[in-house]
């Protein structure tokens, strides 16, 4: 039971960490100063949420684990983030579309997770929801601005939808740990969030004059991250993130 709970918490933490890490790569590279600051602020919120979850997992697991044990000492197969978040940033339009798909999910997810029977998880959800509300506003406004913008910006947004759509399905697949925690009221059934997410996507894309694939039951999606089967890209993220701890184990600032 505790093990499933730890796995579930790590899954949430890994999503926030990998997303935050990817966004931090924009620091100093944003198309304009305001966007640079926004992306790095959003990165910080995500890394903050990841820390709250890792701290909780460390307390539950004991055995001298700390919040740093999970990001720095695990290898690829132990990470449980969805594939969408480890994909390369690409152009601003690509990053933005990834953010929008994930922010829309996180908004509905944290809204539901506030009712978790685990008080600690519920309190992290409530805190993070306030922050994700800003993230979603930022990404959806940009989707509308660029979608309903010039021919070139629209084409880039359409291309980003085509590239990332197949990675969105995994958000709604429950992992084994998720299913175990759902039965105890700790976790949210991700499939139940799908209609809400689709409505947010549909409303925003309509305003952005963007088209997207029609959802069919049984449609095939890329998946694997929730079971530890990742794309090659996460290896490069971990190589950079874990470099110091691998070179100097236990190093402290």
């Amino acid at each position: 039971m505790t093990n499933d709970k730890i796995q579930y918490i790590l899954q949430l933490a890994d999503n926030s960490l990998i997303h935050g890490h990817r966004l931090s790569e924009w620091c100093g590279h944003g198309p304009i100063l305001e966007v640079d600051m926004a992306l790095t602020n959003i990165a910080l919120d995500n890394i903050g949420a990841a820390r709250s979850f890792y701290q909780y997992a460390a307390e539950l697991e004991g055995q001298c684990k700390t919040e740093d044990s999970y990001p720095y000492e695990r290898d690829i197969l132990e990470f449980r983030n969805v594939l969408l978040l480890e994909l390369p940033n690409g152009e601003f339009s690509d990053t933005l579309m990834k953010c929008f798909f994930f922010d829309a999910f996180q908004f509905h997810f944290y809204t539901a997770l506030q009712k978790s029977t685990d008080e600690r998880i519920a309190s992290i959800a409530t805190k993070s929801l306030k922050e994700v509300t800003y993230h979603l506003r930022f990404s959806s406004e940009w989707v509308i601005r660029l979608g309903d913008g010039t021919a070139e910006s629209k084409q880039k947004m359409q291309a980003a939808i085509a590239d990332f759509w197949t990675y969105t399905g995994e958000l709604f697949d429950a992992s084994a740990a998720e299913k175990a925690m759902m039965s105890e009221g700790v976790a949210v059934d991700p499939a139940s969030l799908r209609p809400l997410w689709e409505k947010t996507i549909a409303d925003t894309f309509e305003e952005a004059t963007l088209s997207y694939p029609i959802q069919k039951d049984g449609a095939w999606f890329q998946k694997g991250g929730k079971t530890g089967i990742h794309t090659e890209y996460i290896g490069f993220i971990l190589a950079e993130m874990q470099y110091m701890q691998k070179s100097y184990p236990g190093l402290e600032w």
């Binding site: 305001e34 600051m37 922050e131």
Partner: peptide
């Protein structure tokens, strides 16, 4: 409003 994200997370520009 110039940007919802200012010099720190708690501020807008």
């Amino acid at each position: 409003l110039l940007s919802q994200f200012g010099s720190t997370a708690c501020k807008a520009l």
